[in-house]
């Protein structure tokens, strides 16, 4: 009981803080400072239609590299903690196969879902979406496969190679930015092209494709490790 009342006190303290913040808050009416600079200079400077993409990939590119590293470390941690200690998986129990409808539907839909994910991250600089969203959609297609076929296992060498190559290429493109353009992860190592076309905005689509592949394979790896754990 005393534990519960302490919890209640803590939460009431937060209520007090949040209430102060809520009543003193003034809604924004105009863009200020760095946001104003980003929105006004971005079309001529970087040539990406989607300002959020330009910020994630170029202006705050180093942050994104850090975020991808955190994701990589978390995926590695999951794999390390759940590694099988010389035991064969699924021993002793037979899994019931899925119904015919589910299997046919999955086989039919999975390529299209993966294609949609790739579409999202290739068009990241033109419309809403990008590497993180597209990667998540690709991982959802993998989840679909895992749910339908109980014994399904990905080809680990392929997944690992895709992940490593895209991660390394991301850093290499960043270093090329130092050598050929203004700084680390500068997108102007490739010509900016015509505003609003698919081949525009310099290296932004290239970087977002690498991010998409990396995020997709990492999330798929986390899902598979959690599924087959024993």
């Amino acid at each position: 009981m005393i534990k519960r009342s302490i919890s209640l006190l803590v939460v009431l303290g937060f209520v007090l803080i949040f209430w102060k913040m809520l009543t003193n808050w003034l809604p924004m009416t105009d863009l200020h400072g760095v946001a104003k600079e980003y929105v006004s200079r971005e079309p001529d400077e970087l040539g990406a239609v989607n300002v959020v993409t330009a910020i994630v990939v170029t202006y705050r590119g180093l942050d994104t590299l850090g975020e991808v590293s955190v994701l990589f470390l978390a995926a590695t941690g999951v794999a390390l903690l759940l590694r099988r200690r010389g035991k064969k998986i699924g021993a002793g129990k037979r899994k019931r196969p899925s119904s015919e409808f589910l299997q046919t539907g999955t086989a039919l839909l999975t390529p299209f879902i993966i294609m949609f994910g790739v579409y999202i991250f290739i068009n990241g600089h033109l419309s809403a979406g990008g590497g993180f969203q597209g990667g998540a959609v690709v991982a959802s297609a993998m989840l679909f496969l895992l749910l339908t076929f109980p014994g399904y296992k990905f080809k680990h060498t392929v997944l690992n190679w895709i992940e490593s190559i895209s991660g390394a290429s991301y850093v290499i493109v960043g270093i090329l930015g130092i050598l050929l353009a203004g700084g680390f992860l500068d997108n102007r190592i490739l010509p900016l092209g015509e505003y609003g076309k698919i081949l525009s905005a310099g290296a932004i689509p290239v970087i977002y494709i690498f991010i998409g592949l990396k995020v997709g394979t990492e999330l798929a790896g986390i899902l598979e490790n959690l599924k087959h754990e024993h």
Binding site: V34, R60, L71
Partner: peptide, 23 residues
């Protein structure tokens, strides 16, 4: 654009925070 769009910086922050959160 400066007079017509919302602030893009918080959106960029939250975008990556969601992915990190699930990991």
């Amino acid at each position: 654009g400066v007079l017509k769009v919302v602030d893009p910086v918080p959106q960029a922050l939250v975008l990556t925070a969601i992915v990190i959160g699930v990991a």
